[in-house]
């Protein structure tokens, strides 16, 4: 009995907090997504799957969905290409490499909000780059004021701020490539290129997959940077799913509709995150065995 109480006192506090602040809210989101609640009224009406149906008709939500998927897809490819490319370049224990690794990583330390404000001061219509161009008599470039440019700028800044993490993950992966195999390939007269594609890359396969899925999951949640870099504009062209969800829930008072979008986003990210967990378990086993 005493032992039971002790165990309970060790498990209880964390479990209670977790249930109150995470499990209950997630269930609340699920429930609200089936209502037309505006955030205030005392009696929200139960509307079944109506919010999910209107989600498929809402031009704004569909655009935010596509924008988010585009950011996630293009960003993921760039993060992995840059991550692996630079990992290969800064692999090795020299002091210079250590310096480069720090330089590539440092933006990740800054909050996304600050990164966005910083880049908008650099790239904005009246920002540093355009001010400099104007003073040289050149045309202003619409980095953040043209819809297509703004989306490209957003992705570029996301990559600038984030690929250092991918570099570190790939560096860790590179340490696991069998030295014996590399040596064998060398002795057998394989070229650098052949060695990379036939030995290194296959050995890195699990790390590549983990990187891809991690980047996807992170980019699908893009929010802070949108707020500070573009504010979702111009004309809503850089609104991501998370941005629209918070906007609908708190500014438009469409809490039911916002919750339906949340549930969809949660399911997608949870599905991807589960995949990564499974892949990582397999990768770790591969490393040990």
């Amino acid at each position: 009995m005493r032992a039971r109480l002790t165990t309970l006192s060790m498990v209880g506090p964390a479990l209670v907090l977790f249930v109150v602040m995470l499990v209950v809210p997630v269930c609340l989101s699920l429930y609200l997504s089936l209502t037309d609640w505006d955030g205030y009224s005392a009696n929200p009406a139960f509307v079944g799957l109506k919010n999910y149906v209107s989600l498929t008709h809402s031009a704004e939500a569909i655009r935010a969905g596509w924008v988010t998927l585009l950011i996630a897809a293009v960003g993921t490819v760039l993060l992995s290409v840059f991550g692996l490319g630079f990992a290969l370049l800064v692999n090795g224990a020299s002091r210079l490499n250590a310096f480069f690794r720090i330089v590539l990583f440092y933006p990740h330390v800054l909050s996304a909000l600050v990164v966005g404000f910083l880049w908008s001061a650099v790239l904005g219509t009246s920002g540093v780059v355009n001010g400099w161009l104007t003073s040289k008599g050149a045309e202003v470039l619409p980095f953040l004021s043209d819809p297509k440019w703004a989306l490209a700028s957003l992705i570029a800044v996301l990559v600038w701020a984030g690929f250092g993490v991918n570099v570190v993950l790939y560096l860790a992966g590179l340490q696991t490539v069998s030295k014996d195999l590399l040596e064998a390939a060398h002795i057998d007269g394989a070229s650098k290129r052949q060695t990379f594609f036939n030995v290194t890359l296959p050995a890195l396969a699990p790390v590549v997959t983990v990187n891809l899925v991690l980047s996807l999951v992170t980019l699908l949640k893009t929010y802070d940077l949108v707020v500070s870099l573009t504010g979702g504009g111009p004309a809503g062209s850089t609104q991501t799913a998370a941005y629209l969800i918070l906007w609908d829930s708190f500014h438009n008072n469409a809490l039911g509709f916002g919750s339906a979008q949340s549930v969809v986003l949660m399911l997608i990210t949870a599905g991807l995150a589960l995949t990564v967990a499974r892949l990582r378990a397999r990768a770790d086993r591969g490393v040990q065995g």
Partner: peptide, 18 residues
């Protein structure tokens, strides 16, 4: 561990009401 899969930007909405 399942909790790591919930994006906090989205979780904060129902948490306001909790």
């Amino acid at each position: 561990v399942a909790g790591t899969f919930i994006p906090s930007q989205v979780l904060v909405i129902p948490v306001v009401y909790t």
